[in-house]
Structures are given as structure tokens and as C-alpha cells.
Simulated assay, not measured.
Amino acid sequence: MQQHNDGLRNGTSRAVRLESFGGPEALTVQDVSEPQAGDGQIRVQVTAASLNPMDWFMTADAETAARFGLSLPAGFGTDYAGVVDQVGAGVSGYAVGNRVFGAALSRAVADFVVVDADGNIASGVAHHTPDDIDDRTAATLSIAGSTAAAALAVLDLGPDDTVLVGGAGGGVGVFAVQLARIAGARVIGTGSPSTAEHLRSLGAEPVAYGDGLTGRVRDLDAGPVTAALDLHGTDTVHVARELGLPDGRICTIAAVVDGVPAANGANAAPDALDNIAALVAAGRLRVPIAATFPVEDIRAAVELQAARHVRGKVVIDL
């Protein structure tokens, strides 16, 4: 096994843990035994992790946690970036010192994560980080980027499309709006009035969400809306139907609606994240980072992210 020992602390390391399911108050930073890479695995010394709504949603209560295969004590967070410091037997394509980013379901906010070299979100997965992307940005890509890519693959947008994106200012929206624009589509993004400039900066035409949204979209004189993506619940689905869209041209990520396709990051194309990383490295896609916190302030970071009003991503530094 190849190993890099910088930063190790007598066989222990820090990890954010839950001894009981619940809200931010249940999170603590604990000293734990350092995980070790086994056959077919790599260990990553994490430098940054980012938060997603799924992180606090799936650890809110025991029933929800069980649906994701989680039990106590549990870790927290899924998106990470860092440096490979152990390579297990039988692994090719990774070496000690490689910069990587990826996902490790509900265990990413920790000094170290062990992931399968050829894995998935559940077992952990890693992608090589392009030289032109810093670790904070790389840590934001996996869940939001793959979810946006999967949803847009359902809609198959092109230059003749105008897409209505509900919840466009959130973490997934940052990617969805820009990927839709790169595909050539016109984008109408819903949000609060205070997010209008943020949405414009991403390439969307802003429109306030809430009662009367259908009329406001029509008043934009943007031509017919040909597709819709609901990133929050079902409100945009209902508006899209009122605008005459067939269900096959609507997609959700956070709700199930009869007849409407749903998407999640696990369904993204195998090369989706590498393509997104390349776009970021080339300056064609940017990821606004709303706030950064040291790991010791994990509760405050989750409270901010869970309020659902941040414009971009919340990142934890380790």
C-alpha cells in the first residue's frame, strides 16, 4: 500500500458525527480512529466538504436515515475534495498525492474518507481534480452537479428551448441554469425578488416565485416555455402544466408527481462530473460559494444551508 503520512494524529482524526438523529444540534466534531484503505480502495485526506439539502434531510430522523442505509453513530455530509494519501492493493489510476473530488454518502465532513476506486455515491467515488480548480470549488461539484446533469439529460435541451427552472438560485440551480445555457436554451429562473441579480449573473431571466407565477411567466414575453425543471417541490410542475407543457417535458428532483419524470445524481451519465469539472476549469461554468466555515462551526454552517436562502454553496474547511 502506498501511504502519505502528513497531518496524521497518532491514529486518530476528526469527523463530524451524530449519536442521535436530528437537526444541527445533533452534530459534533469527534476524534475517531483513522479509516484505512483496503483492497480496491483509496483514502483521501479531505481539505474541503460542501453541504447539500440531502445531508440534513436524510439524518433528520431514524426512519428517513434507514431509507438511505444509515444507522447510528453516523457521519455527515457527502461532497468532498482533497488529496489521495493511501492507495490499496489492486488500485490503478490513482497515486498518493493526486488531487481528487467526489462523494461519500454521509461521511464526507471528516479529515479522511475511504472510497472505492471504482465506486458509486454509496460506497464512495473519486474523480481527478483539474489543476485549474481549487479544492473548495471541487468540493461543490458532485451531488449538485450530477443531479443537474441527470435532470437536463431528461429534458434534452437545445437552442430552440425555453426552460422554466423552479428554485434556480439554489445549489442544484447554479449548475442547472448554466448547463442549460451552455446547451443553448433560454432560461427563466424562479426565486425571491432579492435573488434577481444573482439569477441574471448565472444567465437566467428572473421571475418571482409564488402565487401568480404562471401569469408572470407569460408576461415576460419569452415565447412558449418548452420545458420545466422543478428543483424544490411541485409548484413549478403545476405552473408548467398550466402553461401547456406535456409531462414528458417536465422534470423533478425533490418530489414525485405521477406522469412526471424524476431525476437524481445516481442516474447521471458516467462522464457527467468530469465534463462539468472541465467546464469549470475552462471558465465556462462558475460555482458561487456563499460561505465557508471551519469544521468546528459545522452547526452554524448547516443552519445557514438548511434555511434554503443561500445563493450558491456552503463549504466546510478541514
Rank of each mutant, 00 (worst) to 15 (best):
M1H: 13
H4V: 00
G7M: 01
L8G: 07
N10R: 02
S13E: 00
F21Q: 12
L27H: 04
V32Y: 14
P35S: 08
P35I: 07
A37N: 01
A37H: 00
G38W: 03
G40K: 13
T47S: 05
A49M: 08
S50K: 04
S50H: 06
A62S: 15
A62I: 11
G82A: 00
V83D: 00
A89C: 03
A89H: 05
G97C: 04
G97D: 03
A108Q: 02
A110H: 08
V113F: 01
D118Q: 10
G119S: 04
T129G: 02
D134H: 02
D134E: 04
R136H: 11
R136A: 13
A139G: 05
T140W: 05
T140K: 07
A144W: 05
S146A: 09
V154F: 07
L155C: 09
L155E: 06
D160L: 12
G166V: 12
G170M: 12
V174Q: 13
F175D: 05
F175R: 04
A176C: 12
R181V: 12
I182N: 09
G184S: 12
G191V: 13
S192G: 14
P193F: 07
A196N: 10
E197L: 07
L199V: 06
E205C: 11
E205N: 11
A208G: 10
G215Q: 14
R216P: 07
D221C: 08
L229A: 14
D230M: 10
H232F: 14
T234K: 09
R241G: 03
R241Y: 04
P246K: 11
C251N: 04
V257T: 12
V260Y: 02
P261C: 14
N264I: 13
N267S: 15
A269I: 12
A272M: 15
N275A: 14
A277D: 01
A277C: 06
G283R: 05
R284Q: 14
R299A: 10
A300T: 08
A300D: 13
V310F: 06
R311Q: 15
K313E: 08
D317H: 03
L318Y: 03
